[in-house]
Amino acid sequence: MSRQELLSPEGLRVDGRRANELRRISCRASVLNSADGSSYYEQGNTKVLVAVYGPREPRTKSLAQHDHAAVNVEFNVAPFSTSERRKRSKGDKRLLEIASFVKQTFQGAIQTAVYPRSQIDIYIHLLQHDGGTLETCINAATLALVDAGISMVDYVCACTAGFIDETPVLDLNFVEESSIETPDLTVAVLPRSGNIALLQMESRLHSSKLEDVLELATEGCKHIHKKLDQAVLEAANELAKKLS
């Protein structure tokens, strides 16, 4: 897209952020009544809606496992999510890849052994796309799972970081992400233990730089954790208000 520098000599990014700043995050749990848990999550211009169903009886018996719940993730992108309207088929490899990343992340984080012979469905819908799809999906799914009351080891918070002009850069937007030279590292951490649930990178990055970038991303995850916690608290308050 823009040929302009992604990080100006003055240290400003195309959207006015500095290298270590996250985009604005706003999120809300319990946005859908029909689902067991749901969330709406915005990180800059990337907007995601997640619905969680379950634990419930598996659709087919073959999916049922005797000692733990099956996690099923479906990821969809709205055709209007980018300025050029584009319909994606269900078999789109890119979508399946993201779904499988999310699934792997949550298979570890959800205490699946608590729900044997059941299935947990996570439906993710990307409404607007402006970079950082995977991180927003994971964060939104966490919120929705918490909203559904599914027992988890911890929150899962994800954040991306890149490396532009010898500087680690937090939370890439679409313009930054689509530049070929920018490595794009997505980290999902369990904030309390600091364990990493997912680490995924595109493009190349010199190994000596990885630590800095990883550290920055982990730092971002902590901020996101606070945001999510706040949203959970709000939802709980709201519920409490209704109950009282």
């Binding site: 195309v14 959207d15 952020r17 700043e21 985009r23 300025s83 937007n173």
Partner: peptide, 8 residues
Amino acid sequence: MMSVTERY
């Protein structure tokens, strides 16, 4: 094509 980017 109109492209909308955010700015802080």
